[in-house]
Each structure stands twice: as structure tokens, then as C-alpha cells.
Amino acid sequence: MMVSVEPDAGGRLVAGGAEAALAEVYRTHYGKLVGLARLLVDQREQAEEVVQDAFMRTYAARDRLRGDPLAYVRQAVVNESRSALRRRRTIRGSHLQAVSDGVSAEAHVIHDERLREVSAAVRVLPPRQRECVVLRYYEDCSTAQTAAALGISEGSVKANLHRALAALGVALEEER
């Protein structure tokens, strides 16, 4: 059941309505948002934590929500994922190499060899390119939605995607 929430004159979701709207976002988008976090941080358990934290932060600030609550939660998931990665870097004193280390140990299986190669190539993209690819091709975000979620310009999204796709093409050619 979709929850209909009316904004007030200032565009804010009315009291009680914001909570209902967030509950609906949780119910209908939780799995997809965990997938988004999973693709950004590479670790299943951490992805669930990231999404829980993102929802908690959004819930705590629900009085200030304006517009689409999913956009807020999505942005919070991206921010929490970055924080998780940065925390991992800080703790381990290493760069993103550590992220990939966690993946190979994880027991998820991709049966198709081609998809495995694509997936591996996405994982080694620079963080910003990877975020753009995941938001565009997993979350099916438009350029504007991707820009909003990442806090960057639409031009930057386009440039990142262009660069990412070129890099993926090269990486997959080299695999052959």
C-alpha cells in the first residue's frame, strides 16, 4: 500500500506524514537500498548497517524533510557508505585496496562469467565513478537524481559516467 503524504505550504512533509512516508520508503525500498550500499562498500553486513544508519539519521531529521523522502534516504546511504569506506581507510591505514580484499572472501556467487568480469571491473573503478555507475545502472537514477544524491553537478555525473564506461570497456577487453 502506498502512503500518500501531503506537504505543507513550505514543502515539508506534515507531522506524522513524514514518519509514514519513511516507513513506506523502508518497506518498499529497503532491499534496493541495501543493494546500493552493498555495491558501494562491498560488504553485506556493513551494507545493512549503512542503510540502518541512513534511515536512523533521516528519521531523526524527519521534521526537516521536504520533497521526496526516498531522495533523502538515498543520499544518506551514499554519505554513510563514504563514511564507512573512509573509516575503513582510517582504521586500516590503507586505501581502497582493502575494500576489494573483503569481496573475494565473501560467499556470494555470480554464475555467469561475463557478469563476474563486469562486476569485478566495476569494483576497481575510482569511488566517484563507481557511485555514478551504481546509481545510474542499479538504482536507475536519472542524471539529475544521481547529481542530487552525490552533491555534484550534472556535468560531473556525465563526465564520470563517460569515464567509467570507457574504463570498463578497456578492462573487459583486456580480460579477453
Partner: peptide, 22 residues
């Protein structure tokens, strides 16, 4: 798309993302 199709990319990301339930 330089040897990679949008369908490949979407499929790979979907597989990699796994599933989770509210």
C-alpha cells in the same frame, strides 16, 4: 559502449547487490 552493454552492467550490478528484506 566500448564492449560492455547497459544490460550487462545492470545484470552484473543486480547479481552483485544481492537481496535483503525489510
Amino acid at each position: 559502449m566500448n564492449g560492455i552493454t547497459e544490460d550487462d552492467l545492470r545484470s552484473a550490478l543486480r547479481e552483485d547487490a544481492g537481496t535483503a528484506w525489510a
